[in-house]
């Protein structure tokens, strides 16, 4: 179990793992995630199930190396085993035919967006997708997104590919052009904050998938809590998707930085160990 069957780099920092997990593959839906612990001293981190193959009994994870745990995962090769993996967790995305759906993904947030784009299309929606990355090299899954979307717009910060500009500019262009019935955004918290402000202007109901810090992923610890519509919610069991217009993104940004110093130090130590 949890054996890595395939590994592939999608960009210099983002890699794809196809992992053996027949039960999770069978029972997962778009929007679900798993919690993995790379090794016996590792931490538990959440990762979205990007796709699954029931026949092969595998799930696909797409991971961006940002700190110790994601770097540890990046060191695993085909044939290696992820020590612990549990799921599928969270609530599945609410998928229905609502007409035209705008899906916006930023950075590694494009990975969790992929199964949603696929499901939205399968439900009979017209799907418009905006993908945003810092530059051309960091853009992932464009081909897959194109295969499920009616239209894909690519935005890069530096203009090295697609249109130069922020994700919100691409979204606005589409919302001005035509009537959008629903919007899904996934990406860094700061991007989701501005994306939510943008869709509010156009009165488009918007769902955001929140990537808070987690420990157990089963509602036991409250590390993932966040204020939505003035109430405290646990992202792992009440989410991870919420009405983006009600999420207190400033609080989320603040909470994401809770262990910034500890994480930075851990990463320094880890990188030093690697080099000796």
């Amino acid at each position: 179990m949890n054996k890595i069957i395939e590994k592939e780099y999608l960009s210099p920092l983002v890699f794809k793992l196809v992992v053996e997990a027949p039960l999770i593959a069978k029972n997962r839906k778009a929007g679900h995630f798993v919690i993995v612990r790379p090794d016996a001293t590792g931490e538990r981190i959440p990762l979205t199930i990007s796709s699954a193959d029931i026949e092969r009994g595998t799930i696909t994870l797409i991971v961006q190396s940002v700190g110790v745990s994601s770097s540890k995962l990046s060191k695993l090769e085909r044939g290696d085993v992820i020590l612990d993996m549990v799921g599928p967790l969270g609530n599945a995305t609410h998928i229905e035919k609502s007409g035209t759906v705008l899906c916006a993904g930023g950075g590694v947030g494009i990975a969790p967006l992929l199964p949603i784009v696929e499901a939205m299309k399968a439900a009979g929606n017209r799907v418009l997708t905006v993908l945003a990355a810092r530059n051309k090299d960091l853009l992932i899954l464009e081909k897959e997104m194109r295969s499920f979307s009616d239209e894909v717009i690519v935005m890069t910060d530096d203009g090295s590919y697609g249109t130069k500009g922020l994700v919100t500019q691409g979204m606005e262009m589409l919302m001005q052009r035509e009537k959008i019935h629903e919007c899904v955004v996934i990406g860094p918290a700061i991007m989701m904050k501005f994306a939510a402000q943008t869709t509010l202007k156009y009165n488009v109901p918007t769902v955001a998938s929140l990537n808070t810090i987690m420990v157990d992923g089963t509602g036991m610890c409250g590390a993932c809590r966040i204020t939505v519509g003035g109430k405290t919610k646990f992202v792992c069991v009440d989410g991870p998707e919420f009405n983006a217009h009600e999420v207190d993104f400033d609080e989320m940004l603040m909470r994401l930085a809770a262990y910034k110093d500890e994480e930075a130090e851990a990463y320094r130590n880890y990188s030093m160990k690697k080099t000796v």
Partner: peptide, 29 residues
């Protein structure tokens, strides 16, 4: 109550007891 530094006892004890957070060789902070 959601400020950074305020946590449930479950989170606090889980980090320390289950995840080994107080030991240098463990990754959980």
């Amino acid at each position: 109550e959601n400020f950074v530094g305020i946590l449930s006892s479950n989170e606090y004890l889980t980090r320390v007891n289950l995840m080994g957070a107080a030991k240098a060789e463990y990754d959980t902070p």
